[in-house]
Write a protein that binds this DNA or RNA. Structure first.
Length: 565
DNA sequence: CATTGAGGAA
DNA sequence: ATAGCTCCTCAATG
């Protein structure tokens, strides 16, 4: 009870962090290690300590004692009775159950517990029936190897995550080396073959897990290179799953440019081509495709077409449910998950944890900024008022309609125009959600618009002009969420977005992170209608980025008629 | 045989 | 809770 800490720890596992406190920044960094930011108000940020956040911390080597010591140090009025015990109880569950290869029968795995009573308790739990668990000793159960994934998934759900020591298949050997004359990077403290220090660290820590884990790296940090380095380390045939076909192409190019693999060794398993080769690239959509709703998956068999020694899940936060199911069946294959934001909007973080693996490396976005690998971003929330007639329509609308009206507030166009004028000469991306709104904006700003139905050729032409600098302002729809090849800009203006998607916000900020000439600074503006339902969703959207240390300066947009000044 | 567009899934 | 986008497949076109 030192009375000066930045936080207040509460019995319900939440921690309030005072924004104005001198220790705010340091405390936020520390909390991010074992808690999750769930709410951010101007005065306080609310973190929640969850079982999953503790287990991920435990996977990274943190102990209950360290976490409690950290909390004690941060908490202004000490830790409430019971909280300490609860943290200890939850975090020590990680490791109470372990999974091992069965010495005599390879069709079985062994589940070991540190106490007989734990197994007694688990035996009665629903969800575990059907997994053919058989008690084989006071501290041991056997389980068919094929149920390994389901068992881990279910036990995690029940609150008892399993440390998996059952081992991995080597997979078919594939020899590859780095290309000595690989692409030169922009400079900086590069290690051998262009691997940056943090990339090497990520590879090392993944390797240390034995064969399953998730690496969390910001946009622009070179996740693909980490993937390549893991393949190079393991020297085995690899299946790479990505979120779209552009990523497939990018992986292919990087493989060709940076490793000794030849075109004939790299296969694309997509709508266009059905190649299954030592290194095969496929999209999630390919795997989850069904001819019609009730029918089965046509291409799931790709998981078994070769003796893969490694599966890479790119953008693992997007992994669809059927791929989780298939992944449960191949737990003996090594798995690497890659993502910039481990948060999912569907609450299946637990399945990523149990089926792909625990977080094994995370680099906070801002630390990459400090090292100069990405641009420093200034975030501004611009509060745009409603014109009187919009306000009156808003007042009589239903709550769903209210959000739509506020998001589509026409006054945002003038605000956007003023931002663009203030950044004259800079490349600006205007990003929004609704096509009608974007059409109006594009007309008002005299800038081209790219939407889902813009043909690829036209997009490429616009991207090229924007890249060259002959085109300064580009208006884009939700394509910005998926287009991997969208050019970099130094200013982004977000005019509307999906309800509360933290993913989307992070993705959009990622659009301006590429290092800049000179000051290495970029600007992210988000336009939010004042006194409207849009504001609460805006706050939720930015939770992940707030967690990463980005702060939004709130400013009033002023009224449209002042635009001329 | 390649390209284009419609329709369905997620 | 949306509206929007992408990808897959299949059929029609030249």
């Amino acid at each position: 009870m030192n009375g000066s800490g930045a936080c207040i720890a509460r019995k319900d596992m939440t921690v309030l962090l005072e924004c104005g406190h001198p220790g705010f920044e340091a405390a936020g960094k520390e909390l991010a290690d074992y808690a999750e930011l769930v709410k951010s108000l101007p005065a306080y940020h609310t973190y929640r300590i969850t079982p999953l956040s503790l287990w991920n911390a435990a996977a990274g080597g943190r102990t209950a004692e360290q976490i409690i010591a950290s909390l004690r140090n941060l908490a202004r009025w000490g830790i409430p009775a019971g909280l300490e015990e609860e943290i200890g109880r939850l975090i020590t569950r990680y490791g109470r159950l372990t999974l091992h290869a069965h010495a005599a029968d390879s069709r079985l795995v062994l589940l070991r517990a540190d106490s007989a009573s734990l197994l007694d308790e688990l035996e009665g739990r629903s969800g575990l029936d059907g997994l053919h668990l058989k008690r084989s000793g006071a501290l041991e159960c056997t389980c068919p190897a094929g149920c390994r994934g389901l068992l881990k998934q279910e036990l995690t759900r029940l609150g008892y995550p399993v440390l998996d020591y059952a081992g991995y298949r080597e997979g078919q050997e594939l020899s590859l080396t780095w290309k000595q004359d690989g692409p030169k990077s922009a400079g900086g403290n590069e290690a051998a073959f262009g691997l940056r220090a943090y990339q090497e660290e990520a590879v090392r820590l993944f390797y240390g897990t034995g064969g399953s884990g998730v690496v969390v790296l910001p946009c622009g940090a070179g996740k693909t290179v980490v993937g390549l380095a893991v393949i190079e380390k393991l020297q085995c045939e690899t299946l790479i799953l990505t979120s779209n076909t552009t990523s497939v192409e990018q992986w292919r190019e990087e493989l060709l440019q940076r490793t000794s693999l030849t075109g004939g060794e790299i296969g694309e398993y997509t709508g266009e081509r059905r190649e299954v080769r030592p290194v095969t690239l496929a999209t999630y959509q390919m795997l989850t495709h069904r001819r019609s709703k009730g029918e089965g998956f046509v291409h799931m068999n790709l998981f078994n077409e070769r003796n893969w020694g490694l599966i890479i899940y790119d953008e693992v936060h997007l992994l669809p449910a059927p791929v989780f199911r298939a992944t449960a069946d191949i737990q003996a294959t090594r798995r690497l998950g890659l993502t910039a934001t481990l948060v999912r909007e569907d609450g299946r973080e637990g399945d990523v944890f149990s089926l792909i693996g625990p977080r094994c490396y995370e680099l906070p976005w801002r630390s990459l900024e400090q090292q100069g690998w990405i641009a420093a971003v200034e975030c501004v929330e611009l509060v745009v008022p409603m014109e009187p007639d919009l306000r009156s329509r808003y007042l009589y609308a239903g709550s769903k309609e209210q959000f739509r009206l506020a998001a589509g507030n026409p006054s945002k166009a003038a605000a956007a125009a003023r931002i663009i004028a203030a950044h004259a000469g800079s490349k600006v991306l205007v990003i929004g959600q609704y096509l009608d709104q974007l059409n109006e904006l594009a007309a008002r700003l005299n800038a081209p618009l790219i939407t889902g139905k813009t043909p690829q050729r036209e997009r490429n032409a616009l991207y090229a002009a924007f890249n060259e600098g002959t085109l300064k302002v580009l208006v884009v729809s939700k394509v910005a969420n998926f287009a991997v090849n969208l050019p970099d800009a130094s200013v982004a203006i977000e005019v509307s977005g999906a309800y509360g998607s933290r993913q989307e916000e992070a993705q959009r900020l990622g659009r301006i992170l590429r290092p800049k000439q000179g000051e290495n600074r970029a600007y992210f503006y988000t336009l939010v209608t004042g006194d409207s339902r849009e504001q609460e969703f805006a706050l939720r959207r930015r939770l992940f980025l707030t967690e990463q240390g980005y702060e939004y300066a709130v400013k009033a947009a002023g009224r449209p008629e002042e635009a001329t000044s």
